[in-house]
């Protein structure tokens, strides 16, 4: 049986930049307070156009759980590792705090968590998705307008697979070769 390949598909047309996902993530994952400490974010995009013909988009994001993760390549102690399902995570007790993974990440997805004394980042809420109730990641579940859809790319019947089949999508910084697994519908 094939492994799962977890991914998130985002429809940013729906995003209203309400910050529900960022607060849900912080409370669910014990991210310490402080504006440098976060696992996910909603990008403040610049205003387009000139008054009164203005436009603005909002781009939520987090760790891309790349299939070719530079963070995993550079970690000296193997603290950053990837599960068979594609989730990139940090084994806390192995992290030496050299922050190489932070300079290696093209997405600024990581931060150093003083409370667990290790580098921290989105884990697709592994405690929820592998937990008893099989819940969705907090950011996916809480979103008022359902911007994010979470699922298994290796399952052709999953919502994510169907969305990516039906609609064109893009990823962030494709030229980096990281093969990210956050897909933004165009």
């Amino acid at each position: 049986m094939k492994n799962k390949r977890f991914a998130i598909v985002l429809d940013t047309n729906r995003c209203i930049d309400c910050k529900a996902c960022t607060v849900a993530c912080k409370t669910e994952n014990h991210v310490p307070l402080g504006t440098d400490n976060y696992r996910n974010w909603v990008g403040p995009e610049p205003l387009r156009g000139t008054y009164p013909d203005l436009g603005q988009s909002f781009t939520p994001s987090q760790c891309q759980h790349c299939s070719n993760p530079p963070c995993e390549h550079v970690c000296p102690t193997g603290a950053t590792t990837v599960t068979p399902d594609g989730i990139v995570h940090v084994i806390e007790h192995k992290c030496i705090g050299c922050k190489y993974c932070m300079t290696a990440c093209p997405y600024d997805a990581r931060y150093y968590n003083e409370e667990i004394e290790a580098v921290d980042k989105c884990t697709f809420c592994s405690q929820r998705i592998y937990g008893e109730n099989g819940q969705l990641p907090a950011c996916v579940e809480t979103c008022p307008t359902k911007v994010r859809v979470f699922g298994d790319l290796n399952d052709p019947n999953s919502d994510v697979s169907k969305l990516l089949a039906k609609y064109p999508s893009r990823v962030l910084k494709p030229a980096q070769g990281t093969k990210p697994n956050l897909y933004y519908l165009i």
Binding site: H73, V74, G78, C95, I96
Partner: peptide, 26 residues
């Protein structure tokens, strides 16, 4: 600068990552 230099000494030996330039550096 590093938060846990002792961990480096331990895990560089137990679970080295040969693709890591910092591992090679150490």
């Amino acid at each position: 600068e590093i938060n846990h230099p002792i961990r480096l000494a331990i895990y560089a030996i137990i679970s080295p990552n040969f693709t890591s330039a910092i591992w090679w550096m150490g």
